[in-house]
């Protein structure tokens, strides 16, 4: 009976220990994951549609506005549509970049702006910030622009902008880089776990060592008569020498970190609002 009681109390203790473990793990997992769950918020603007060129009816405009606002919130980037009657002599890329800088002033800002000038029959899709760095490369921009051009040629501006919003939102959400962000975060937590486990093991082993102080004595040093030790013979004899040679590795390969964020981006001459933001264009005529 005594044994059964012991087994029960041990079970009780083990389950208590596991409860503590689960509580801690739950707490720390929640704390780790919560920053990840909150979406990467770049300061984004309220109004998404700037229809100065009057290409959309009021109803169409509000529908696109709602679509783009939802999409922007969903993926955390600014998705903007900007129409004008005329470029006023400016180049279409310069115009779109200035417009974007004026709307999204955050130096860390990220988004994409679709500029259409009806009189010039020119368009430009300008992606900036993370949207350009991670999600829409030059090639993607070109492809998007080409696909939407047919809408513009037909005069289906609503269709162009709606498709624009859908495509960008989809690309942003599908982007592997974003989930790569998650995997980096998880590795961080995992290596922290390993380090903590290692330290914890050391601590617990020290606690264990203090529980046993019985050990045999190797020498009889305590029983030596004081001053009785004398060296009577002492001889050091040289035997031989062994030599080993190791060739030194010459390390000429320096590391050059891949370039890349700025390839393809063109910053227009003149001023920028805010800090340096990488960006890319895809423009054309319709």
């Amino acid at each position: 009976m005594h044994n059964a009681h012991n087994a029960k109390s041990i079970l009780h203790k083990i389950s208590r220990a596991f409860l503590i473990l689960i509580a801690f793990t739950a707490t720390f997992t929640a704390m780790i994951l919560s920053p990840m769950l909150s979406v990467n918020v770049n300061a984004y603007t309220e109004k998404k549609v700037y229809d100065y060129g009057d290409l959309l009816t009021d109803r169409e405009e509000s529908r696109i506005e709602e679509q783009l606002r939802k999409a922007s919130e969903n993926c955390g980037h600014d998705i903007i549509v900007y129409t004008v009657k005329s470029l006023g002599g400016n180049s279409v890329s310069e115009y779109s970049q200035r417009a974007a800088d004026g709307i999204n002033t955050d130096s860390d800002g990220s988004g994409i702006l679709y500029l259409v000038s009806i009189n010039d029959r020119e368009y430009d899709i300008y992606a900036f910030g993370e949207m350009y760095e991670r999600i829409m490369s030059d090639r993607e921009l070109n492809r998007l622009a080409d696909d939407l051009r047919s809408y513009l040629s037909e005069g289906d501006y609503y269709g162009a902008f709606s498709e624009f919003g859908k495509r960008v939102e989809k690309a942003a959400l599908n982007n592997e880089d974003y989930s790569g962000n998650i995997s980096v975060r998880l590795t961080l937590s995992f290596s922290t776990l390993i380090v903590s486990a290692f330290i914890a093991l050391i601590i617990v082993f020290c606690m264990k060592q203090g529980m046993k102080t019985t050990r045999p004595e190797i020498t009889a040093g305590n029983y030596v008569k004081n001053g009785s030790f004398k060296v009577t013979v002492s001889r050091d004899v040289y035997l031989y020498t062994s030599v080993s040679r190791v060739r030194i590795q010459s390390n000429n390969n320096g590391h050059r970190s891949g370039g890349g964020h700025h390839s393809g981006g063109r910053s227009s001459g003149g001023h920028h609002s805010g800090g340096h933001r990488s960006g890319g264009h895809s423009r054309g005529r319709f």
Binding site: L21, F24, I32, T192, V195, A197, A200, K212
Partner: peptide
């Protein structure tokens, strides 16, 4: 001098608890 018995349940319980606590602290710090 002496030797005391060790409760393995407590051993692993402490290990788990300290690991979890340290992980939280280290991650917060980082």
């Amino acid at each position: 001098v002496g030797e005391l018995p060790i409760s393995w349940a407590k051993f692993w319980g402490f290990f788990a608890g300290i690991t979890a606590a340290l992980t939280v602290i280290l991650t917060l710090l980082m």
